[in-house]
Amino acid sequence: MQGYRQSTYGDRLADIYDQVHHAWTPVDTVETVAALADGGPVLELGVGTGRVALPLARAGVKVTGVDVSEPMLAQLREKDPEGLVQTVLGDFIDMPVDGTFKVVLIVNSLLQLAGADTQRLCLQRVAEHLTPDGVLVLEEANPAVFTNPGLEVLRMTSDELHLLAQQYDPVHQHYFAQHVIIRGGEARLNPMTLRLTSTCELDLMCESAGLVLAERWGDWARSRPYLADSRSHVSFYRRAGA
């Protein structure tokens, strides 16, 4: 998508991100990650406005959050006046953090890296920051439910209209979208570009980083298997031999 940068999604959407995604609650995510951390520190890549990181920190987990979008981090800091979450501005390749973490959490953010090479480099950097008994937890979209082009109505009221325009490039596995919000006679465009990965490709990239799949589920509560029609999967990776 012409003119799109890694930070574009967060920069454009930061001020209304929580409002747009208000229907999603991270209760199961927080409970699962807190249990995996077991008192150890957590690193979240793509921390955004802190919708997972803040409840984790308030539960007593030490959380460091990395995001490439300063407006997103500004929203997080505004909600976190006590500074419970350590925020770091940076991308997932440089990953400007020190030390190791019991859990590295990535919720649909690996997909925002533009190619297989950058996704693979990110996973290698993650492995460098995991404790020997640490776990990488990834939520990713199921490509099968994101590859149909077209226009979708997300929300329609007497005052506003939300539309989602979608395209998919199967050669490069790129998904392009525009979330269009029309309100008060004005239209707001919120673009998004993802590189969708299959679970097989993801497993191979993790394997090259020394991480092996331990579990995969269709939800954060680990109550549903990941199936062909699942919207996303939650995958848990640990060091080979751990």
Rank of each mutant, 00 (worst) to 15 (best):
V107W: 05
H22F: 15
G10M: 07
D159K: 12
E31F: 06
A37V: 10
V68Q: 06
G241D: 06
V135Y: 00
L151T: 14
T147F: 00
D98Y: 01
Y9M: 04
L227Y: 03
L194W: 03
S223E: 09
L113I: 13
V234G: 00
H179L: 11
H129I: 08
N190F: 15
R216Q: 06
T157L: 06
Q2F: 12
V30K: 03
V234Y: 05
E152C: 02
A221Y: 10
R188Q: 14
P143I: 02
S235G: 09
G40K: 08
L111A: 14
P71L: 00
S198Y: 01
L111Y: 02
Q19R: 14
Y237L: 06
D18R: 10
S232V: 03
F101L: 13
T100A: 07
C200Y: 03
H179N: 09
G48K: 04
V153P: 05
G99P: 03
L121K: 13
V42I: 12
C206I: 02
R12P: 09
D28S: 10
E78Y: 12
R231Y: 08
V20W: 07
L189H: 10
V212W: 09
R120V: 04
D159C: 03
D18P: 03
T8Y: 05
A240C: 15
H172Y: 06
V126P: 07
S235Y: 00
A114K: 06
G10A: 12
R51L: 10
R77N: 11
A242N: 14
L213T: 06
V88S: 08
E215I: 14
D159H: 11
A228G: 08
F101W: 01
T100H: 04
V85G: 06
A37L: 11
R51P: 10
A23N: 11
T147N: 05
V63M: 12
D169S: 06
V30E: 03
S208R: 10
L121H: 11
Q2V: 14
V63N: 07
W217T: 03
A240E: 14
D38M: 09
L56S: 09
P132G: 08
H22W: 15
D159T: 13
R125N: 09
I16Q: 15
L189W: 14
L121Q: 13
L202P: 01
L189N: 08
L161D: 12
R125S: 12
R58Q: 15
P225E: 03
V212H: 01
Y4L: 01
V42L: 11
V47H: 06
R125D: 03
W217R: 01
R195I: 07
D67F: 08
R239G: 09
M192H: 10
T100R: 02
P71W: 03
Y168S: 06
L121R: 15
T100W: 00
P191S: 02
S232C: 13
E82V: 13
P149A: 13
A74C: 07
M95H: 00
S158A: 15
W24R: 15
G150Y: 09
D80A: 11
V171F: 10
